[in-house]
């Protein structure tokens, strides 16, 4: 069980939106994490500087949060390393092959009213619902 946190989640979501607006306002860029991160891999994009800085900011966030709030960050991650390795491989490949993830297609694409992003979002959401259903309730769950 995890606690339903509508207020904190909506505030956190609004902050993600604020970050997306910042990138568009200053640099005219979409805040898609799979795009930003994957272009740091070879062949490295020419404008790698802000991309690397963005990823550093993402990674620094929990450290900053804990320093400021002095609250622990609740987290439960599967300890099944084979499962997590496979999941990582699929997430990395699928998001870049499909041109975006939850941020690029989900947040930014839906905000641009892009049909492509809407379809992509519906596809990965439905597939993820089915995957969780099969893991938890289907395959001997």
């Amino acid at each position: 069980m995890t606690e339903f946190t509508p207020v904190a989640s909506a505030i956190g979501g609004a902050m993600i939106g604020l970050s997306a607006i910042m990138l568009m306002l200053f640099m005219g860029r979409i805040a898609g994490i799979s795009g930003i991160a994957s272009r740091l891999l070879p062949p490295v994009a020419e404008d790698y500087g802000w991309r690397l800085a963005f990823v550093v900011g993402l990674i620094a966030a929990p450290i900053v949060y804990q320093q400021v709030s002095e609250q622990p960050i609740e987290q439960t991650v599967s300890g099944d390393l084979v499962l997590m390795g496979l999941a990582g491989l699929l997430v990395g490949f699928g998001s870049v092959f499909g041109g975006g993830c939850t941020s690029g297609h989900g947040v930014c694409g839906l905000s641009r009213l892009s049909v492509r992003s809407l379809i992509a979002t519906v596809v990965f959401m439905v597939v993820a619902f089915v995957t969780v259903f099969l893991v938890r309730h289907g395959l001997g769950g």
Binding site: G94, C101, A120, V123, F129
Partner: peptide
Amino acid sequence: GAAVFGVGWG
């Protein structure tokens, strides 16, 4: 791509 991503995410 979206489907493969969805499996990994799930």
